[in-house]
């Protein structure tokens, strides 16, 4: 079976761990608990006739004081770059995270998630400005979470 390493990258407190929890366990916890280092989860999925095991790296969030160590990025086939759609600075930093990921994995694929969309009004959601291919997600409500991981898996396996 094919095993693919994917990363969740982004600033701290954007909901990377929550997206994984929603995707793997279909659960959500409102309490913010910082991630330190990395935690790996696994998920089997089929894309067409291809069976794949995603090795999902929940990487500790970047802070103004600490960049994500390169050792975590090595060998990744893809990444979900996450921002909090309510925190401007996390969206500004998306470009930096993408650049960092692509520098280590030039052939790596990525998708951008604008998480916590449940906090936006319907009007805000409708007019939300995103990078091409970006997805508004809500780990709390489960909106577009499976689609997010599925899109990346397809990209990687295509």
């Amino acid at each position: 079976m094919i095993r693919k390493k994917i990363l969740l990258l982004g600033d701290f407190n954007v909901g990377k761990t929550s997206l994984i929890k929603r995707y793997i366990d279909n659960t959500f916890d409102d309490k913010y608990l910082t991630t330190i280092g990395v935690k790996i989860s696994k998920k089997f999925l089929s894309v067409g006739s291809i069976e794949c095991e995603l090795i999902i790296w929940d990487v500790e969030g970047a802070t103004p004081q600490k960049r994500i160590p390169e050792q975590y990025l090595v060998g990744a086939s893809g990444a979900i770059i996450v921002a909090d759609c309510n925190r401007e600075e996390t969206m500004v930093n998306l470009e930096e995270h993408i650049k960092h990921f692509k520098a280590v994995n030039p052939n790596g694929k990525y998708v951008v998630a604008y998480n916590k969309s449940d906090l936006l009004t319907p009007q805000q959601r409708e007019h939300f400005q995103m990078v091409p291919g970006g997805v508004l997600t809500s780990a709390k409500k489960g909106d577009h979470v499976n689609q997010l991981f599925g899109t990346l898996a397809k990209e990687i396996l295509s």
Binding site: R3, K4, K5, V38, I40, K42, I55, V74, G75, A76, S77
Partner: peptide, 8 residues
Amino acid sequence: PEIVGYED
């Protein structure tokens, strides 16, 4: 599974 991607 942390080894996945570290093969090189």
